[in-house]
Design a protein around this nucleic acid. Sequence first.
DNA 1: CGCAAGGTACGAAAATGATCGTACCTAGGC
DNA 2: GCCTAGGTACGATCATTTTCGTACCTTGCG
Lengths: 107, 107
Amino acid sequence: MPDDEGHPDVAEMELGAVLSALADPLRRRVVRELATGPHGAARTCSSFALPVSKATVTHHFRTLREAGLIRQVDRGNSRMATLRREDIERRFPGLLALLAAEGAQDA
Amino acid sequence: MPDDEGHPDVAEMELGAVLSALADPLRRRVVRELATGPHGAARTCSSFALPVSKATVTHHFRTLREAGLIRQVDRGNSRMATLRREDIERRFPGLLALLAAEGAQDA
DNA sequence: CGCAAGGTACGAAAATGATCGTACCTAGGC
DNA sequence: GCCTAGGTACGATCATTTTCGTACCTTGCG
């Protein structure tokens, strides 16, 4: 039941932190790709090809992790990120659907 | 049919602007009070007793209005604010329930 | 071993956002 | 007409956030 290294528990996820995290378009893009992708998929930070430097990518993923939206697990060389889908749905039902819908009309 | 003075149309409401607006605790409090209060209620800006100056209150209400969350109508002396409940629900279903749930456990 | 790939830590610079004071405007009440 | 109450506009300040460069660490591979 632990906060392994900065992952808040389901009950400790705060709406303010979640909304602040999702206010950034880059972070919203990461969550949307995870949400619309295969269930339980684990991807590396770099696989999202964000148009910013490595240091900035680290910053954004930390924000997402500390808000409770993603889980990051060391896997040897790199660090895999997964969406905490069930946790988010339990705490903030419908939120992921809102994010998934963004940009669904075009593209 | 109009954008009367800075009220975006339903189709023009952007998720980014809405999430940014709701990232601030003061603005979230305004929307939550309107959402949990009587349907269609119109309140003045000052009736929320926000712990900030008049100028800052104006700033927050403009942010909410430009995001499409509230509608502001001049009524003689003051300016009444109403929640755009149906519009929000149509565009971002479930969002208001998320806000209303915040702080419902305590207080 | 040596080295590149993938990330993090640490500042620091730049942009954004929140806050305020003051001045100003408009409608109601006296 | 005058004054107050409720808001807005403008400009400035302060805090937060985004961004970066650089240095550093670790893992896997040749």
